[in-house]
Design a protein around this nucleic acid. Structure first.
Lengths: 149, 149
DNA sequence: AGAATATACTTGATATGTCAAGTAATAGTG
DNA sequence: CACTATTACTTGACATATCAAGTATATTCT
């Protein structure tokens, strides 16, 4: 066969893995806090550790700014967060976790940890390092837009 | 810090990598055939190599059946595909590539190959094997739903 | 200060992801 | 053959992804 079906590439294993992980995470998180998404849970936890702006959070979790706006709005409407303007720089948003949001974090934190452990069970530290290195290389390759060659 | 931010896990590198790859692919494909998505291009190529049913294709590329229905409908409306009922089993859909679709495949095939090469540049065969193995392990871990432990 | 840029975020349009519920056709069972 | 279960796909509702265009505020430059 002169042209291997793209699905045979390792790149599709990456897709497969991330989808499996997301599914597991969502399933387990939903069993504790129904209707929250893994993205929303992740964002809650990030905010609880620092007071990043929307844009900074978006960059942390590789999300588009547009998506971020929408996710944040949903989280506000669900009473996980409040948003006020930064008094120094009125372009920026100050995100604060509500009491309700704090309770949710308490509930979810152990499960999120467990999800990671479940996914990485029997993956040695060395393997995780290898994985990390190779993935970073691929990421870099993809970011050098000029593919003259 | 007692609870590492989830974004520090290798699992988020997986997200990062797949997003970078998708971005590169979409960017390059769009330069040749505007308005086609990488998913649609991938599906076109898969159909051109076999006559799988929708469900089978969905499984190949890890897509939900609902998404598949919608993507196929879009592809029909864009004149990439036609769909008829299988005469033997009327539940099944027969997907056929239109002339227009064939031209698009011709145009895109080299670029899709190049995208893969770009992403995997300087990743040795051995590394790809390692990557594949570790990813499969993680995928398996995530699919064993019972995380009693 | 005024103009040009840049930053932080928003909105619209369209595509896809995901769960739940539904339809039509087929297969399996008593 | 009637009944039930399964399969293949669809639809609705909602969340997120992505690009493009837009708004408001800050910053830089002249």
């Amino acid at each position: 066969m002169s042209f291997n079906t793209p699905t045979k590439t390792v790149l599709y294993s990456i897709e497969e893995t991330i989808k499996a992980y997301r599914k597991l995470s969502q399933y387990n998180i939903s069993s504790i806090v129904p209707k929250i998404t893994i993205d929303q849970a992740l964002i809650l936890i990030i905010i609880s550790h620092s007071d990043n702006t929307q844009t900074e959070i978006a960059n942390l979790i590789f999300k588009d700014y547009a998506s971020m706006t929408r996710i944040i709005n949903l989280m506000i409407s669900k009473d996980y967060l409040t948003k006020t303007l930064d008094k120094i720089d009125k372009r920026k948003a100050k995100l604060k976790i509500t009491e309700n949001g704090k309770i949710i974090i308490e509930k979810l934190t152990p499960m999120i940890k467990l999800n990671r452990e479940t996914a990485l069970k029997n993956i040695s530290y060395k393997e995780q390092e290898q994985l990390f290195k190779i993935l970073k290389k691929i990421t870099q390759n993809c970011k050098t837009i000029d593919n003259e060659n």
